[in-house]
Amino acid sequence: MSKIVRGRPGQTSPWLAIPTIAYLFLTIGIPLFITVVYSFLQRAKIGMGVTWHFSPKAYKDLFILENLDGTTTFDTRYVKVLWHSFQYSAVTTVATVVLSIPIAMWIATRNESTRNILVAAVTLPFWISILIRTYGLRQIIDDNGPIGWIAHKLGYENFHIIYTPIATMIGLTYVFLPFMILPIYASAERFDFRLAEAAYDLGAKRWTVFRRIVFPSIRPGVIAGIALVFIPALGSFLQSDMLGGGKTNMIANVIALNFTQARNWPFGCALSVLLILLTLLLVQAIRLISKKFGDQVSLV
C-alpha cells in the first residue's frame, strides 16, 4: 500500500534540505565563525594573516589609541567611521523613502498596461551590474559631466559634488532606490483607493487622507524597504570607494584596507564582527517597529 500524503503542497522528506543546510554551514557559517576567531588572534609578524596566539588587541584598538606622544586616549577614528556609515545610510534611507512613496503610489494608480511597463522600468536596474550603475552615475556627477556642465553654465565655477560624502550618498540612493520602490509599490497596489475617496468625501484634507488612510496601508512596504536599503547601505563598499574619492569613509572600506595595505587581519575581523552586531541590532529594531504597528513585514 502506498503512503498517503496529505497536508501542505510540495512536502517531502525534511532530509532533502540537509545538503543545502550543510553546504551553507560550510560556506557561510564557518567563514563567519573564522572571522570571530581571527578577531581574537594576533596579526602575523610579517606578511598577511594571523598567528595563533590569543589577543584582545584588535578590540582594544577599536576604541583606545596609543598616541604617538605615548599617551593613551579614547580613539575617535573608528567611532567616527561607524557614525559616518550610519549617517550616510540613514540619509540614503530617508532619501529613498521620500522619492519612492510618490513613484510607488503613482505607478499603483495607473492602468494595468502602463503599470506593467513602469514596474518593469523600476525592476530593470536590479538586473544591471551595480558596478556599472555606479560608474555611470560617476560620469554624470563628474566635474566634466552633465552636472558639472550645468553648474558651470549657471555660474557656479567652484561647484564640486564628485568625491564628496554627498556624492557617496547620491550613489547609495541611486543604487538602492529600486529596493525601496518595489516593496512600497507592492503595498500600494493592494490599497483600495475608494477608501481615500470616501475619506475625502467626508471632508478630510488631502494631506490628512494621505497621513491617516494611505500611509498606514503602505507602511509595511516602507518598513520592508527600510530594511532592504538601510542594511546593505551600511555595509556598502563601491559607492564610497568610487564616488567618495577613496577617502575610506565607510566601515566596509576600512575592513578592506585592513585586509590589504594596513595588513591587520585581526583588526579587520574585529570591525567585521562589529558590523555584524550592528546589522543584527538593526534587523531586530526593524522587527520591533513592524511588530509595534502590527504590520506583516517580510524581510526575505
Binding site: 587581519w265 575581523c269 558590523l275 555584524i276 534587523v283
Partner: peptide
Amino acid sequence: GSAFAWSLIGAPLIIAEIVLAVGTLGF
C-alpha cells in the same frame, strides 16, 4: 531545524558582503 536553516539562508542577504568575502578568504 528550520529556524537554523533560515538563519543560514538569510545570512547572505543581511550580512554585508565584505564581511563574508574576507571571512571566506580566511576560511
